[in-house]
Each structure stands twice: as structure tokens, then as C-alpha cells.
Amino acid sequence: MQRHLLSTADLTRDDAVQILDTAEELRSLADRPIKKLPTLRGRTVVNLFFEDSTRTRISFEAAAKRLSADVINFSAKGSSVSKGESLKDTALTLEAMGADAVVIRHGSSGAPHRLATSGWVRSSVVNAGDGTHEHPTQALLDAFTLRRHLGELDGRRVTIVGDVLHSRVARSNALLLSTLGAEVTLVAPPTLLPVGVSSWPVQTSYDLDASLDKCDAVMMLRVQSERMNDAFFPSAREYSRRYGLDDRRFARLPEHAIVMHPGPMNRGMEISADVADHARSVIVEQVTNGVAVRMAVLYLLLSREPA
């Protein structure tokens, strides 16, 4: 595995399997009286969040703490960053504090890549979501959740529905699930599929109904209703009618198929309330699995000789 986790494209199948296997063992920790391991004692993990994301930050924080790492939360809001401090100066500050890993969430695609390759820091860099690029740990936890329910992913059909164009979750999942052997179909209105998607290792479709019958899992992406102001679709109602997972569509899924969503959900928009709360919806479990997967990532990145 490489020193940083910036994109799921950087993960070989072996890397990904190692992360998932490690997470599998770590997940059992949640059932033990003492949920903490001494593994990263004395290491410092910095959560550098230029965008608000309490869910992701808490998940990484719990993961680091369960491995006994020291955690520093650095939120850009109200800090020197919002007063115009550059990414570089922030990075140099973290370096001076002796960060071993920097978990970065940034609104600009490629910011984690920049941090990792600029020479500003020696730490491992973990991409916790960058702009409309990638969110690798989300994809890993999705793959982990899929594997728990469906077994090995070879030949499994996963349908990802929604705003693929602006979704870092879709990008990371498309690459990772393909690496793991799954057949991924991206379903979206043509306006919300990126130019060049034909070169991705996935199928695409504009028709959700046609993609339901054979899929083993359907992953609904959050769609912001503001997108209709940019004419990506005419109205929230029309979007919901054509691309929402409602009860009727849910009934057409195979018996074993599961429903996923990276959260936060727009109930009534891309997913109906009943589907969201159904027993075959694994949305809450995704959150639990997130901690184990992020522990695995931090462990595998940090338990190695410093460069």
C-alpha cells in the first residue's frame, strides 16, 4: 500500500482486500468490553477539515482514538484558515506539530493530492473527501458493507444512482468496486453524468427502472435540490419521479438486494422514508462500519517505518 490514501484508483485489489480484511477483524472490537487498542500510541492524527462534515470527522476521530493515537481536530471555520492562511502554511504548522497522519477534507478537488506531493509535510495524507473528486474511505466502507451482506464482490451488480457528476462518493466507488470485481452501473439523468464517463470501468444508464431487476445492491446518492437552479433537472418532483427509490421500485429489487446511502439523506427526494427505514436498508450500518474501515486505513498507513 502507498504512503497516502488519496484516491481509490491508487489501490490494487490486494491493497483493498487487505484493508477490508483488517477492518473485518477490527470491527469485532466494537463487541469487546475495552474498545481501544494500543497500536498507534504516541502517534498524532490531525483531522484537517476545510469543509464542515461532522459525520466524517467524528468517524475518523473515533477510529484514531480507538487505536490510541492522539487526535487534533483542526477546523477551518473560525481559524486562521478562514482569515486567509494558505494551505501551505497550515500544512507547515501541522508538520511542526509532528503530525503522523493528516486526514483532510477540502472543498477543492485535488487538495489532499497537493498536500501529499508538495513536500510541505512528511505525514501520511488521507483524503476524507475533496471537492467533487473522491472520498476513498467512504467507498471502502461501502465495499466493506457490501461484502458483509453479499460475500465476495466478484460479479456482483451494484447500481449507483444520482448526481454522479458532483459526487466524490460515486467516483471512489466506481473505481474501487470495479477493482474488487463488481459490475457497477451508474444511473443518472444525462446532465449529471460527467463527460468522459465512457472511459470509466462502469456501465451507465439513464433509466433506473431498467437497472433494478438484477442488481444486488443499489446505492442512492444525495441530490441537492439547488441543482435544479443550474438546470441539471427541471424540478425536485420530476427528479424524484424518475430517479428516486420509492416503494414501488424497491419492490422490484431482488429479495437479497440491499439499499445504501452515504448520507445525509433527502428523504422524499432520492429515497422514500419507508425504503430508508426498511430492514434491507443498511444505511445505519454503513456508519458503524466506517469506524472499522478508517481504523484499518490508519493502522495500515501508520504502522510502517517512517519515510
Binding site: 478537488s109 485535488g110 468522459g196
Partner: peptide
């Protein structure tokens, strides 16, 4: 827009410039 709109912009998640 951040870069040329094409296969690369789709992969890199950057707003394309057609």
C-alpha cells in the same frame, strides 16, 4: 471551469471547460 472538459476532468472531479 478549472480545466479542459474531457475524460481527465471527469476523473479528476474538476469543472470542465468545453
Amino acid at each position: 471551469a478549472q480545466m479542459n472538459e474531457g475524460a481527465m476532468s471527469g476523473v479528476l472531479g474538476m469543472r470542465g471547460w468545453p
